[in-house]
Each structure stands twice: as C-alpha cells, then as structure tokens.
Amino acid sequence: MTVTLIRLLILYTLILGCMRLMGRRQIGELQPSELVITMLLSEIASIPLENTDIPLLNSIVVILVLTALEVLLSALCLKSDRTRKLLQGSPMPVVWNGKPIQKTLKTLRLTIDDLLEALREKDVFRITDVQLAIVEANGKLTLQLKPQMQNTTAELMKIPAPQQGIPCPIVYDGSIQKENFAYCNMTDEKFQAILRQSGLRTEEIFLLTVDTLGSVHYVRKEHDDA
C-alpha cells in the first residue's frame, strides 16, 4: 500500500509537470495527436499503480518520451504547414450557400443526418439558412449564417454603441494584483484613492475591478460568522 501511495505521488507530480509542459492546448480542444498522448499517458500511469511488480522507472521513461514527442511535434507543426496538415488535419467546408458539399461529407464519412444534427446543436434547423459550415480539425462544426438570418447588431442598425471599458481585476480575495495595474492605467496613488473613497481596507475586499475607462466596481468580503 505504501509503495502504491509513493508511486502515485511520483506519477501524479510527473504527469502534472508533463501536462504543464505540453501547455494549455492539451487542456482545451484535443487534436488527434493530443488525444492519443492523453489516453496513452493515463494508461501508462495506471499500470505501475495497479501492479507494483512493474518497475516505476519504465513508466517514467515512457511518459517522458511521450511528453517530449508531443511538444516536439507541436513545435514542428508550428514551423511546418505540411506537418500540421498531416498530423492535425485541416478544416473542411461541408455546407456552402445552403447546400451540403457531398464530396466533403463522403471524405469525412459524415451522413446528412450527422450534419443536420450538428446544425441543430447550433440552433440551426434549416440548412438553407447556412452560408458556410466548416468541420474543424478537432471535429467541431463552426458555421456562418446567411446575412438575412444573422442576429441584428448595433453596427447593422447603424446605432452608435457606447464605448465599454475592459475590466481588470485589481484585488482578488484581499490580495492586490500588481501585475494587472498596467492594463488599466492604475498607479499606487490611484489605488490608494479608490480605497479611501470606498472606506475599505484591501483585506476587506473580495473583488475590485477597474475598467479601462476608469469605472470602479468592488465586492466586499463576506464574514463567515459560523
């Protein structure tokens, strides 16, 4: 039991480090190579936990090589368009101007039912409403509706829209986020002035945001009396 526990801690730390090394891409939408790596990693990590007869070092070496391959391949994909297409595939249009592109559907082995279902998931019930639909490399469908079917926007209606500032968190849970000061033209003096105005100390603030236009919004920390 102790051996398994120690092995678990080592593998957990290693896999966490490897996932961080592979980057954020791994956590979001998975590309085919990333899916393979993630599945392999979880399998390889579980084997020495289930069977303590298997040397841990074997799994560690395999995990390191898999991580290295994934990072190197993604670096190669960044450099080479051909490698990217080969390893990750490329987006393919499946609907153009309200009509399904049958050749692409055959290539992707998608039936018309699959396509209609994917459209319905996007709240589109008539294929004729679609200007362009693309199956992305990760298998997701993205689409653009015909102009007459798109939502009305202020720009379309020629209504002048007021500028909105971009909010920056300045205090999180009583802790000042100095690194965000530059994004919203904040200085120490301005921050102290905000605190004086609100009558609060930093430790009493749960969230304080300042937007790029200078609007301040804060939420006071709730006291847990229980």
Partner: peptide, 23 residues
C-alpha cells in the same frame, strides 16, 4: 516555445540516457 522545446529535448535526452544506461 523555445524554452519548452529545450526542456523537452533535455527530457528526451534524459529518457534515452536512462534507457541506454539501464540496458
């Protein structure tokens, strides 16, 4: 990205070395 690739190459080297040394 360069730093990440460098770490990866080092890891790959470590894994290969471990493999050869163990053999």
């Amino acid at each position: 990205m360069r730093k990440r690739v460098l770490i990866t190459v080092l890891l790959l080297f470590l894994a290969m070395t471990l493999s050869v040394v163990s053999f």
